[in-house]
Design a protein around this nucleic acid. Sequence first.
DNA 1: ATGACGATTTACT
DNA 2: GTAAATCGTCATA
Length: 219
Amino acid sequence: MPTNPRLPRRFFRADAESLARKLLGQRLVRILPDRTRLAGLIVETEAYLGEPDAASHAYRRRRTPRNEAMYAPPGTSYVYFTYGMHFCFNIVCGKTNEPLAVLIRALEPTEGQQAMRRNRLSAPRPMPKPIADTALCSGPARLCQALAIDRSLNGIDLTTDGRLFLEPASGPVADDLVQRTPRIGVAYAGDWAARPLRFVIRGNPHISRKTVPKLAKFR
DNA sequence: ATGACGATTTACT
DNA sequence: GTAAATCGTCATA
């Protein structure tokens, strides 16, 4: 049976800012072990620029077991565990050995919302009320939970793997629909905290925050 | 071996 | 608006 086209390797062979911009409107697809297909359109991303970027896990070319996947070829996944309970999913870009990545921060769910909701209702904590569609994948850890993305998907090749990949969706998002803001949760990064490296589809209800973050304290 | 911290989310005032 | 949850990771020693 025919398989849908995917974004090819060359799509990811780009600097992090360009890729973060180009990923808006593209489709992220997750196939579960039972063959359930989950998918959503990317509506929020953040670029992490590697060596010079104080907010990046690869700042000063730091290389540890955790972030090893950042040094892999473009189109590799980088999934990391944080705050003792959450996973976040990135797409590695640039060239091999150049630790650039784009964090996927929110999706507009398009397929498998029922299964997503089921995934969200399990760990780490049950939720009291039904989850609105706009809250299903509106945050980097939420979307990982909804799509059942965990450590087992770290370092995989998104251009060939059958479990997690990207498909081209509606054409490029128009420039006037793209809004840039500072990145979320990187106040520790000094000057880099203020750089407008977060990309969102303006006004989309599935993004993680409604308002532009204000700059928190330095240190 | 130890301790400080985190590319977050949720509940609660 | 503030704080708790929760533990792998990494720098330091």
